[in-house]
């Protein structure tokens, strides 16, 4: 690269001149950042931190002394989030229930208070999983029923477990890359043949709203004997906030550092702040043994 620099500066004396443009950073007020995704069997936690103007060149400070409240769908306080360290707060009261709405409100120092809400979607049951082997690939058809009356958002992952003997029988887990048709899924990398691949696919019900759905997915399982691996499918029902945030966040990460990529606006549902407060529920299929 240095060898090219001999030519470049000669041409660039006319073509490159840099100077600082004043950016009124005083007018860019920091805000509270809320990051939390709640499920139905997880401990409810939230990460709180401060935003800074874009010229700030240090680690973004965590918020360690905020007043963060967990709310029900009517805005009533259910409990408080307690700080456990590094800006991570936990709520250890009742486990959130599916179909219910929850909210969060955060107040901290001189910052504008922020709030957000989400509704935990009802999990959708996987009614059936058909498999068939094609060489070193395993095809899945995952059946479930979508609710036509609601706008629904999903994610699918396929995992596997096998027993590995290293002196002891140890259960090892595998997370597979899935291949699915591009027209169905909303994320993933296009392989140029009308299919996309990803570790986790996100999709909405726009292509099939309502009725029985047969979601096709293919994984590469390799030359190992199929009956040593037990497969399972995880179908998550996502809140709209979680779905939008995840898609935009993934796009943002993919576009980072690519000068030819369009800028990405990462979704946020936090009023007067940044971040995401979303939710999901999930259904894990029975273990699938491939004959």
């Amino acid at each position: 690269m240095k060898r090219y620099l001999l030519i470049v500066p000669i041409a660039c004396w006319m073509f490159s001149c840099q100077k600082e443009i004043p950016l009124k950073t005083d007018e860019i007020e920091p805000r509270i950042v809320v990051n939390s995704i709640i499920g139905t069997d997880d401990t409810v936690w939230v990460s709180l931190s401060e935003s800074r103007n874009v010229l700030y060149d240090s680690t973004l400070p965590a918020i360690t002394s905020a007043t963060a409240k967990f709310l029900d769908g009517s805005g009533n306080v259910i409990g408080d989030f307690i700080h456990e360290g590094d800006g991570i707060y936990y709520y250890t009261g009742s486990v959130p229930g599916v179909g219910n709405s929850y909210g969060i409100s955060v107040a901290y120092g001189d910052f504008d208070p922020v709030s957000a809400s989400t509704r935990i979607p009802v999990p959708v049951t996987i009614s059936d999983v058909d498999t068939n082997t094609q060489g070193e690939y395993l095809n899945f058809d995952i059946d479930f029923t979508d609710n036509a009356a609601t706008a629904d958002y999903y994610s699918i992952t396929i995992g596997g477990q096998y027993i590995y003997f290293d002196g002891f029988d140890t259960i090892k887990s595998i997370a597979y890359y899935l291949y699915s048709p591009s027209v169905i899924v909303d994320n993933g990398t296009d392989d140029g043949s009308g299919m996309k691949y990803a570790e986790e696919f996100y999709f909405s019900d726009k292509t099939f709203n309502g009725g029985n759905v047969e979601f096709p997915a293919t994984v590469y399982v390799g030359p190992w004997s199929e009956d040593t691996v037990r497969y399972f499918v995880v179908l998550r029902s996502l809140s709209e906030e979680y779905y939008k945030y995840r898609l935009s966040y993934d796009k943002y990460n993919e576009a980072s550092g690519n000068p030819f990529a369009q800028p990405v606006q990462v979704y946020s549902n936090v009023t007067d702040g940044f971040g995401v407060f979303g939710s999901f529920s999930e259904f894990v299929s029975d273990t699938i043994v491939v004959e």
Partner: peptide, 13 residues
């Protein structure tokens, strides 16, 4: 032009 003016932590993934 499109210019990001603020930065913040994303969801740990």
């Amino acid at each position: 032009v499109t210019l990001a003016l603020q930065q913040y932590n994303g969801m740990p993934v």
